[in-house]
Design a protein around this nucleic acid. Structure first.
Lengths: 196, 196
DNA sequence: GCAAATACATACCAATTGGTATTTTTCTAT
DNA sequence: ATAGAAAAATACCAATTGGTATGTATTTGC
């Protein structure tokens, strides 16, 4: 990687970290350059303005990252009830990339920026639809394999599960601990069992 | 109501509106006083600082408001599957106080402010627990009346439903329309039926 | 090895931020 | 009616915001 590409990446990574913990609009460019040691001239050489950097964070850092790992988890046993539960339990309780007090990065950005800027909303929709398709495919396969009832609407179920995931991330932030995660996971298990 | 109390209320109401559509930290006091016609002197006579006004919005406007209406809806038929579905469908599709593109006011504030200021998080927890208790009571009653299976964990189910509600509000913001609401509501109905 | 493009540094800017100090108006109790 | 308190108006402030102009250093292609 060229030195220029490295500073660009440094900016994106630190920006993501600050945005994740503090919000997009409340993270200033001065914050970012102070934390990275990169100067303002360098910043504005790599990005025309703040929003363009925001798009780069979404499209270059959030998208694709760890995408393969999750896909693997969703096809571990072939039984969606098990695989989906396993993935979500991992995301909530074990993943080191997210912290209960700061919630889900994609959920946070969606909530903060969707009504602020439609372009952000669209970028986040693309991201989100990746996840939806992955999980939907897992359910479709599970139906074919007889793990899931034939009358189950896969797309509908995916909306239901991801919504719950985003929502419980909000509860976690509010309560400041993972207790609500555990309660919610128990009911998720019940719900998934009901699809079989 | 005294004139002073009226200006105070005007501030709170317009502040709520701006915060709902634009976020708390990205709504400036200058915005609020410009939109209300109240001067900065008056603002700082009524509130020591911005955060104190924020607490007043939460505690005096969001809390208690329309609390009785929702309680009534949750006891309409006595069957929680019907009553909860009815309430949430109303909130998502019919309520005039919320708009799909701006989501749920309480959900928004929770997400934005929980990690920013623990006092805000606590105030929002109180608010939220009101809702949780109401819905939990509906389920407990429904169990006694034989509408809900005995093995259903009411508290757990409430976490599951409200999380889903918050999450689908996020989807709505992202997609900019109510289509996802309708899809999610279908699956909510399935889920609630499974509790019977 | 050198010119031209790339990459980064520095100093600045107008607008906005939350907040204060001080004055003026309005209400209220006697 | 009037003194004193409550309420509101005005003018200001330092710090922060996203962004720019202009410079200097570093690569890169030849």
């Amino acid at each position: 990687m060229s030195k220029a590409a490295a500073t660009r990446l440094t900016i994106l990574q630190k920006a993501f970290e600050l945005i994740y913990t503090n919000g997009y609009r409340t993270t200033s460019i001065d914050d970012i350059i102070a934390q990275t040691g990169v100067t303002k001239g360098a910043f504005y050489y790599h990005f025309a303005n703040k929003d363009e950097m925001g798009f780069a964070v979404i499209n270059e850092l959030l998208d694709s990252s760890s995408y393969a790992v999750f896909e693997a988890m969703l096809h571990k046993t072939g039984n969606p009830a098990q695989d989906i539960y396993g993935l979500i339990k991992y995301l909530l309780l074990d993943s080191k990339e997210m912290v209960v007090e700061y919630g889900c990065p994609i959920g946070n950005l969606t909530q903060e920026l969707s009504s602020f800027n439609r372009d952000f909303a669209n970028a986040l929709m693309q991201l989100s639809s990746h996840w939806q398709k992955l999980m939907e495919q897992s359910i479709v396969n599970g139906k074919k394999a007889g793990y899931i009832r034939a009358d189950v609407n896969a797309r509908q179920v995916v909306y239901f599960i991801i919504s719950g995931y985003w929502g419980i991330r909000n509860f976690g932030k509010m309560e400041g601990n993972k207790n609500s995660y555990k309660i919610w996971l128990k009911e998720l298990k019940n719900y998934l069992a009901g699809l079989q």
